[in-house]
Simulated assay, not measured.
Amino acid sequence: MACDDPVELVPGVWQIRQELSEEVPLYLHLVVDPEGSALVDGGLPSSLGWIERLMAAAGVRDRDLRFLLNTHGHHDHIGAFAELRSRTSAVVVADPAAVRWIEDLEVNLREFALHRPDIIADSPELRAELAPTFGRPCPVDVTITDGGTVRLGGPVVLEALRLPGHVEGELGWLERSSRTLLLGDIVTGTSWSFFHGHLLPTQLRGSLHRLRALTLNEDVRLVCLAHYASRTAAEFLELLTEVERYLDQVTDTVEGALDATPRSLAEVWRHTCAQLGRVEEFRGLAMVQAHLREAVAAGRARCVGPDLYVALRSDGQVRLQR
């Protein structure tokens, strides 16, 4: 895995890039205040050495690291937390809905990757593939909700923004003095070989709208993301449009697989992967299931049996095959 040198993006906000694969980068961010510092997300277990490089470049000693701020509980955002908390006594801060996944990694693995063993088997091979990407469970010291703030001791204040959609419990962090927005995965990858995925499509759309309004109304100057390079406000607004179009495409593809003939979740998932050129894997399966669930709730589809779906017209009648 390659890694770029640490860079100070704006005074007090540092970044380092780790390549998780040829197509997926991971950006980790450190916010520095004269009285203390905060790391936003803990990467993978393999990220620890690069976090150390980031801290060294910023002149942050272990005793200066006051907070470990989480965006959400996926494995590539919590992997080094346990080691860093033990070594630095930094306080782990997360959304209440992220706590289970941070503190219980078996629950995390089961709900993240092994949620449908009838479709994607809970196999030793899959567990062996995922095991190196999970660290140790880590206690969460403080939970925080929308609008809560974390003060580093000096002038730097980070405000929590609750941004559900990719998962239920996701936070963004707004550093007001530099007008910097630090985000996890709410702005999902759109062009990877696998689906980055989202579990709450409607809430994702709402969070993207909120980020657009925040950027326009709060004079955001820099946006730092977990899987995209940092960008200006204007560049970020363009990215939001791209992700919104992608969300529309996924919705249309999933629901376009339905007609009067009952289709299973597995069939719709495989259809969606084929149509959009993605590998069949667990993230996409969870995403397709979420879209079907919302289509049923909105009256655009009906569940007619265990994991069997048909399309509905606007009058509630079954839509005939097109």
Rank of each mutant, 00 (worst) to 15 (best):
A301M: 15
E129T: 04
T180Y: 01
E170R: 03
G184T: 06
R212M: 02
P164C: 04
F194P: 06
I78C: 02
D76M: 02
A56G: 09
A234V: 01
L208N: 05
P117T: 00
L181I: 09
L152C: 04
E255V: 08
A94K: 02
E106A: 04
A274F: 05
I120N: 00
E242C: 09
L285M: 06
L237G: 13
L182E: 03
A128D: 06
D315H: 13
F195A: 04
T88I: 03
E168F: 01
G43R: 05
H29P: 09
P34D: 14
T251C: 03
M55W: 08
R205C: 10
L199M: 06
V40I: 14
G148K: 02
D95M: 01
P25R: 12
A80Q: 01
I78V: 13
G299Y: 05
D146I: 04
T253F: 10
A98H: 03
T272P: 13
H77V: 14
E8R: 08
L312G: 02
S264E: 13
H77F: 11
R66W: 06
V140D: 05
D64Y: 10
V288T: 09
Y309Q: 11
E8W: 08
P306D: 12
E238F: 09
E159K: 07
G135Y: 00
P117K: 00
R61T: 13
I119P: 01
R278K: 15
L239H: 12
A290R: 09
A290E: 10
D315V: 14
P164T: 01
R205E: 15
D104V: 03
D185M: 00
G148R: 03
F67V: 11
L20R: 10
L265R: 14
A213H: 11
A301W: 14
S89N: 15
A290W: 13
H74L: 15
D33H: 11
R179M: 05
I120P: 03
A160Y: 01
P262I: 14
L105H: 01
A234E: 04
A297V: 12
L65D: 07
I16Y: 14
R87D: 11
A121Y: 00
A90L: 08
S314C: 05
E218R: 15
A233Y: 07
H196I: 07
V254C: 11
L152I: 05
A233E: 06
T188Q: 08
S47T: 14
A131V: 03
L65M: 12
D62P: 10
S191Y: 05
E129V: 07
L28K: 09
G12F: 05
F67G: 10
E235W: 14
P155Y: 06
H198Q: 06
A82I: 08
G59P: 08
Q203D: 12
C273T: 13
H75F: 05
H271C: 00
E103Q: 02
T261V: 14
N217G: 10
V187G: 02
L320I: 05
R162T: 11
G206D: 15
R283I: 10
V310I: 12
R66Q: 08
R212P: 00
V268D: 14
P96Y: 03
S314H: 13
G184N: 01
W192D: 06
L84M: 04
V223N: 00
V60Q: 03
A213V: 14
P117Q: 04
T261G: 11
R270V: 08
Q317V: 03
L69V: 06
D104A: 02
G169Y: 02
